[in-house]
């Protein structure tokens, strides 16, 4: 705390908001997004119905800006500022949690790039309104598939590890035992999201409906 630094609590509040925004709404949205996209594994009709409903909410622009774009932009840009204040040292101190610290930063950057591109292509670009056919068309391109696999994995890791960080940084998991449990919870969320994402991407690529057994 050098004398030159402003003695203000703004930094604390922004830090906490950055951390919170990663869980709610962004993290929650990621889970919800993977959930609604999983309808692609059920059937084309179901997928189109669900996505259609989501894309026709009233005040769509406002809602999306409030719960998604602004938090996302804040989380990413402020996150990069935080990153710039740190100095990774995992090569000289190669402990697992230290590597997680490094990975959290790089996956954050990857996720930022991926989400930007994803929004550009799926939300603002060609389609405007997403239908199964359009996505499936994109997913015939192997580069798309690779980009999605990498992007979804990065987002999922960032969320899972971020949940662990959140539990520690908000004083939810205090003892080593609780932090250990939080790490496992985060890992489960991360792995779950990664798997769901991969399956959805492959579902589009192969026009595969593994969860469609109950639908007539």
């Amino acid at each position: 705390m050098p004398a030159a630094a402003p003695e203000s609590k703004t930094g604390y509040i922004l830090d906490k908001l950055q951390s919170l925004s990663g869980v709610v709404p962004i993290g929650a949205y990621l889970v919800d997004h993977l959930w609604s996209n999983s309808y692609a594994l059920v059937s084309i009709e179901k997928y189109n119905q669900v996505s259609g409903e989501l894309q026709t909410v009233p005040w769509r622009i406002g809602v999306e800006a409030a719960v998604l774009w602004i938090p996302l932009l804040f989380h990413s840009l402020y996150g990069m500022y935080i990153w710039s204040r740190g100095k990774s040292n995992a090569l000289s101190h190669p402990w697992m949690s230290n590597w997680m610290y490094v990975l959290q930063r790089w996956t954050g950057l990857l996720a930022f790039v991926f989400i930007g591109w994803h929004l550009y292509t799926e939300r603002f670009g060609g389609h405007g309104v997403t239908r199964y056919a359009g996505v499936a068309q994109d997913m015939t391109n192997p580069w798309y598939v690779i980009a999605y696999l990498v992007g979804v994995t990065a987002c999922s890791f960032h969320l899972g590890n971020g949940l662990w960080n959140f539990a520690c940084k908000w004083g939810i998991a205090i003892t080593p035992k609780a932090q250990h449990a939080a790490a496992w919870f985060g890992a489960a969320v991360g792995v779950g999201c990664t798997l769901a994402g991969i399956v959805v991407v492959l579902g589009f690529h192969y026009a595969w409906f593994p969860l469609g057994g109950y639908v007539q």
């Binding site: 705390m1 609590k9 930094g11 402990w95 949690s97 662990w164 940084k169």
Partner: peptide
């Protein structure tokens, strides 16, 4: 204030480097 607790980003190196085994992350 600046330099305070919010700066911790949970790399958890501290606890491994502590020669006295203090539960720093806790």
């Amino acid at each position: 204030l600046p330099g305070g607790i919010a700066d911790c980003d949970n790399a958890q190196n501290c606890v491994k480097a502590c020669p006295k085994g203090i539960p720093l992350t806790e």
